[in-house]
Design a protein around this nucleic acid. Structure first.
Lengths: 161, 161
DNA sequence: CCATATTGGTGAGACATCGAACCAAAGGAG
DNA sequence: CTCCTTTGGTTCGATGTCTCACCAATATGG
């Protein structure tokens, strides 16, 4: 009986660990994103909130490329997202004085205010659902997740430009 | 780098644990999905592979609604995905003899063959990237992730139909 | 038996994301 | 200076997913 035995009768061998892992990750992502998008003010998309949040925490004045890398999306997607955020008045995009083909992204007062509002609502919503047990689980796994993410990030086959 | 001390006076100093957790989950999801979609034969989408995989492991002959629930997507999305899988010849959709408005989804020989091919390539790709340390991390966190997923699933605000 | 609510499934429209193709500015090498 | 490669950004078309609206069939209550 080898490792890849074929079981007759419908049921097959259990999927490898990595399958189960990414399956959970996918569902968790879906569930968390759904919760988030329900409580974000003005129907703002979670990924857009993430950008504003990132600029607040890590400082603004970054280029779209830098933000795209931080958010793990392509520059195409970032162009689109920034356009939306600009339309909302949450960010201001200006030419980069150091590089004529580049741009710089700055938060507006409105963008910061939006984040404050969003944070409050998100914290309330998540606080209502997450108890001590859940927070303990998150604390227990967060470091492994970070390490895994770093490893995958470093070893992905094609560099995401 | 992880120094996110921001201006004092009301601003958030440390993103709550849940933020960091879902952030890692999101990136992991993105990274894993990208790897998967690169190695899947014929440009098949990861979510479609997941459906074929599910039907293989858990048995086919299920209704679209059941599959949608298992995959954590809406029934509309499932309609669309099944249509694509049917176009690929991986599944066969037939009327449900027990319920005239329902359907039943069965795997075709081609669908099973596709899964075999896909599994082989996916295992090779992931095996090349994931070492013992990574598998150990996954094994260490998988149970907490499952529990978290179950908790979120049970406590989400609006039941996903 | 009929009216109403519920459930399985589909269609249209919106949106985030991706890959490919493209343009413009910057950086080297000669 | 000139050519060529690299890099920052945008546009286009396709796809997966969601919500809202809808239809058909079943289940339920009188």
């Amino acid at each position: 009986m080898t490792d890849d035995n074929e079981t007759p009768g419908g049921a097959e061998r259990e999927p490898p660990l990595a399958f189960a892992f990414f399956n959970e990750v996918g569902i968790l992502h879906q569930l968390g994103g759904a919760m988030l998008s329900q409580v974000l003010p003005g129907g703002v998309h979670p990924s857009h909130f993430a950008i504003v949040n990132h600029l607040t925490l890590r400082g603004d004045g970054k280029t779209p490329i830098e933000i795209a890398r931080a958010m793990q999306v392509t520059k195409n997607t970032m162009t689109h997202s920034l356009k939306t955020l600009e339309r909302h008045g949450f960010i201001a995009v200006s030419p980069n004085p150091k590089d004529a083909r580049g741009k710089l992204v700055h938060l507006t007062a409105e963008g910061r205010a939006f984040r404050e509002r969003a944070i409050a609502r998100v914290l309330a919503a998540f606080g209502a659902v997450l108890g001590e047990a859940e927070l303990a689980r998150m604390a227990r796994v967060i470091e492994d997740l970070r390490a895994l993410r770093g490893h995958l990030d470093a070893n992905r086959l094609p560099p995401r430009e």
